[in-house]
Simulated assay, not measured.
Amino acid sequence: MSNNEQEDDRPNLEVPDHLEYSDEHVWVDASVDPAVIGITEYAANQLGDLVFVDLPEVGTRVEAGDEIVELESSKAVEPLVSPVAGTVRYVNREAADDPSIINGDPYGEGWILKIALDDDEPDLLSAEQYAAMLRRL
């Protein structure tokens, strides 16, 4: 199968190049401080229409691997697993009030948290590595 045919399997999945990704389908924009975190378009599609987002309190310390947000859709309740360690500085209250923002714009207005990162380098995937992982799913 050529690369073009593989890409055609997922014609609508966006994987922005400037972000880094976890294998739990969470994106991180560490180019800004605090870092911005959200779920990928793939995760939003898998969950379906979100109906509730349970956000942590600002000031909460998180470690990589912690379940820090609960995402509830008509299909399932799934945790957002933090791919980074740090302190929550902002939460997206608009997304909590209207979770459909996350489904509609997961890489923009649908961001979920902003975290002041600890100094350790998170173990994240590049956009290219994440896209390759999606093709294997």
Rank of each mutant, 00 (worst) to 15 (best):
N3P: 09
E5N: 02
E5P: 02
E7P: 00
D9L: 00
N12S: 01
V15Y: 00
H18P: 15
L19M: 15
E24T: 14
H25D: 12
A30H: 07
D33W: 04
D33E: 12
D33P: 03
P34K: 02
G38E: 02
N45M: 13
L47I: 05
G48D: 07
F52C: 07
F52W: 10
E57A: 09
E57I: 14
V58I: 06
T60I: 05
T60W: 04
T60Y: 03
A64S: 05
A64N: 04
G65S: 05
V69F: 03
V69N: 01
A76N: 14
V77A: 12
P79M: 13
L80Y: 12
L80V: 13
L80F: 07
P83W: 04
G86M: 09
G86W: 05
R89Q: 15
N92P: 02
N92I: 00
A95I: 01
A95D: 01
A95P: 01
D97A: 04
S100N: 00
D105H: 13
P106I: 06
Y107I: 12
G110R: 04
I112Q: 05
L113M: 12
L113E: 08
K114Y: 11
D118V: 09
D119M: 09
E121F: 08
P122E: 10
D123Q: 09
S126R: 14
A127I: 15
A127E: 08
E128W: 14
R136K: 08
